[in-house]
């Protein structure tokens, strides 16, 4: 308990407190000073500005859209499908296909995004457009016309591996007898998935949904590299990217550390609230229920 407590304190609580404090100051490169006592405490002013920020609403809904779709279709959905498929084929083949799905995760982001940019580039350079040409289809400027589709695909392909590994090991740890029993009891392979395997994956599902929601909420580097929040004003800007832009990479050369921290604090709040809700929905307490054994 104690070592874990120290870790949480050092790497979560203390940074959060610092960020919360920063979010209540006007710290920015425009008024930067090395004398911290001159830093002005401005209370909730940054939050008031945030609430009235004309783009905040759009960025907020962008984030929800992005997390919801990436999570459900890829980080959980496709991860589950890949795990189920690769555990129902010969072991070697299963291992091979899972290894392929790990590649996006272990490829350096810049290289990975370069590959995607090359794929979706405009005709005549883009690979997809070359195929479109060969097949006699019209060519597209994907980065401009379909930014969201590719933001989700790019992140989704990376996100599959985590859930896939967790789900696969959970499926493989289900006792063989249990799986055989369900076939003898009369289920087809699909019914076995529906009535036996999936219910037994509840705990790993909770874990992956929770963990991946939070990591998607805070992840922005692929979007930064692929679209940088564009095209146009904030078309694919998500909350964490906005915090980064405000605090560290303002378009106008003015890094607003205080204001960016306010964005970050909102993200922390959302994360904590979501984690608590997930625990409730999946009835965590039931998973650790007291046994009621007595002798026959």
């Amino acid at each position: 308990m104690l070592p874990a407590g120290i870790l949480v304190l050092l790497f979560f609580l203390i940074p959060v407190v610092i960020v919360i404090y920063l979010s209540m100051t006007n710290l920015a490169s425009a008024n930067f000073t090395s004398n911290l006592s001159k830093m002005e405490f401005i209370g909730l002013e940054n939050y008031r500005i945030l609430l009235n920020d004309q783009f905040a609403k759009r960025i907020f809904f962008n984030s929800i859209f992005y997390v919801l779709f990436t999570l459900s279709m890829f980080n959980v959905g496709l991860a589950l499908v890949v795990s189920l498929l690769t555990t129902h084929i010969p072991r070697g083949a299963g291992f091979f296909f899972r290894a392929i799905w790990i590649l996006p995760r272990v490829t350096a982001s810049t290289l990975y995004i370069l590959i995607w940019k090359r794929m979706i580039a405009e005709a005549p350079f883009g690979i997809i457009n070359q195929f479109n040409g060969l097949l006699g289809l019209p060519t597209y400027n994907y980065a401009a016309d379909r930014p969201w589709e590719f933001v989700i695909l790019v992140n989704g392909f990376i996100g599959v591996s985590f859930g896939m590994i967790i789900f696969t090991s959970a499926i493989e740890s289900i006792p063989k007898d249990l799986l055989n029993a369900s076939l003898v009891d009369g289920s087809s392979l699909l019914q076995r998935i529906r009535y036996v395997i999936l219910p037994l994956l509840r705990w790993p599902l909770l874990f992956v949904v929770t963990y991946q929601t939070l990591s998607l909420l805070t992840s922005f580097e692929q979007i930064l590299l692929l679209t940088n929040g564009g095209p146009g004003l904030y078309r694919t800007e998500v909350w964490s990217l906005a915090a980064y832009h405000r605090a560290l990479s303002n378009y106008f050369g003015n890094a607003q550390w205080g204001y960016g921290s306010a964005f970050a604090v909102v993200l922390v709040l959302i994360g904590v609230v979501l984690a608590v809700i997930y625990m409730r929905v999946f009835r965590f307490s039931e998973l650790v229920a007291e046994p009621k054994v007595e002798v026959l």
Binding site: P175, D177, L178, N180, A181, S182, V196, L200
Partner: peptide, 8 residues
């Protein structure tokens, strides 16, 4: 089954 294999 030897392990009973009940659905937990």
């Amino acid at each position: 089954f030897q392990s009973y294999a009940l659905y937990p």
